[in-house]
Structures are given as structure tokens and as C-alpha cells.
Amino acid sequence: MRRLTLPLWLISGFLYAFMYAPIVVVIVFSFNSARHGGPWMGFTTEWYAKLLDSPDKITATNNTVILAVVSTIVSTVLGTMLGYGMSRYRFPGKRMFSWLMYIPVVIPDIVMAVAMLSFYALLRDWLGLFQLGMTTMIIAHITFQIPFVAIVVRSRMVGMDPAIEEAAHDLGASTWQTFWNVTFPLMIPGVLAGAMLAITLSLDDFVVSFFTTGPGATTLPILIYSSVKRGITPDINALSTLIVLASVAGVIGATLLQRPHRQAGGG
């Protein structure tokens, strides 16, 4: 079980191939000169060049980035405050709320998506606000990001030795001084991990965006979905390849960032 037997190699190799087959095929076909998918017709980079002068794809990229950055900033601030508060202070109904926080983790996206869609419609009827678009999509993303950030930050806080903050108070630091000199610096890795999770969730999300967006506020996943529904085109493969490469860079970057911490902790 602890040894790398031949069957284990074979099974794992097959599973890796299985997981990577779609990723590889998208990359390969983004260089296929055939205009309508189909079999391999020869190598080309023209689809990448084409991306640059297709305004809808550039707009979608901008929208995706704005959505991800704005929602991540807001949700990281609110989620960090929430995670900190929940690990430190008591309030009525706290137990129930800690269950509630897990809703976005466990509930299918589509349930969340249609709930927000109908809620926005109700608000629109009453207030005239909440026209579907960028704003509603950002609000929706913040909503599912906050609990994820809070859960990550809280688990980090719970793992901290309470004596460290006691020591700060014992050495004469006020609450405010303790928080900024001791607690917050120790929270930073947790906050960063939460923010990473939040931005990834936002970039990956299709279902919630699809239901809460409005005219003009198309994101990359929505663009890919509607294109694919009409038939896969090589330029969509090129776009997807770039997104895949961005994810790979993100994963490797995050792994490298975490490495020095792990070594210090292990020593």
C-alpha cells in the first residue's frame, strides 16, 4: 500500500491521462487550422491573433477581471472580519449562523443562482434597483465568497495559541495594539489563503454569473458557454488555452508561495 507497485502506476497513469485529456485536447485544437473543429488539418496560430481583434472577448476578459478583483476585495475584508469575530466573540444565534455559513459550500450552484435571480427580481419590483448586470453579479459573487473566506480565516484563528494574545495583553498592549501588532500579522497567511480561494471561485464560476448577469455584462465563462452551445470554434479553444495557462500559473505560483512557510513550520 505504501509501495509504488506496477498496477498502482498503471491505474494512476491512466487517471492522470483521463484528467488531462480534455485540457490537452483544448490546447492542441487551439492550433488546428480547421475552421469548424473536426479532425487535424495542420498547425496555425491565427486563432490567437484573432482573439486580439475580437472586442467581445476583450470585454469579457475585462468584465471577468473586474468581477473577480472587486468581489475578492470586498469578500476578503468582510469574510476576514467575520472569521475573526466568530472565533473570538459570542453573540446570540452564533451556532445557527456557523451552520448557515456552510450553505454555499454544500449547496448546488444552481440553487444559489436561481434564489438570487428571483430575489433580485423581487427587489427590482419593489425598489426599482438591482437591474441585472455587473453590480448584481458582483454582489452574488461576494455572497458566496464571504463564507469561504470566513471559514478559512476562522480555522486559522482557532489553531492559534491563545496564550500569544494573552501575552501581548500581559505585556501592556491594549486591545487595539494587540490586534495590529500580534493578531493581525499572524492572521495574514489565513487571509491570503482565503483571498486566493475567493478569487479562484469567482474566476471559475459560470452558473451563478449566468443567472445573475444582464445585458452587456458577459464574462469569459458565459462567453465560452454560449459559444460552445452554438458549436465549438477554434478561437474558443485558443481563449480556453489561455485561461488554462493562467490557472496553471496560478497553481504553481501559489505552491511556490507556500513552500517557505511549510519549511519554517516543519523545523
Binding site: D161, A163, I164, E166, A167, A168, H169, D170, L171, G172, A173, S174, N181, V182, P185, L186
Partner: peptide
């Protein structure tokens, strides 16, 4: 936090993000 007493904790409770001098200078 204004008591004229100080504590040495069983787990030491040193501030992990500060070096030794900063730890000692904290109070």
C-alpha cells in the same frame, strides 16, 4: 493590561513573527 505583573507562559507564547529583540522590546 496595566497590571504591574508579567507572566511567563508554559507554552512560552513568543510572538512567532517577531525576532528575539522585538519580542523582548514589545512590552
Amino acid at each position: 493590561h496595566k497590571r504591574p505583573v508579567n507572566t511567563v507562559f508554559q507554552s512560552y507564547a513568543l510572538f512567532p513573527h517577531m525576532n528575539v529583540s522585538d519580542n523582548i522590546a514589545f512590552g
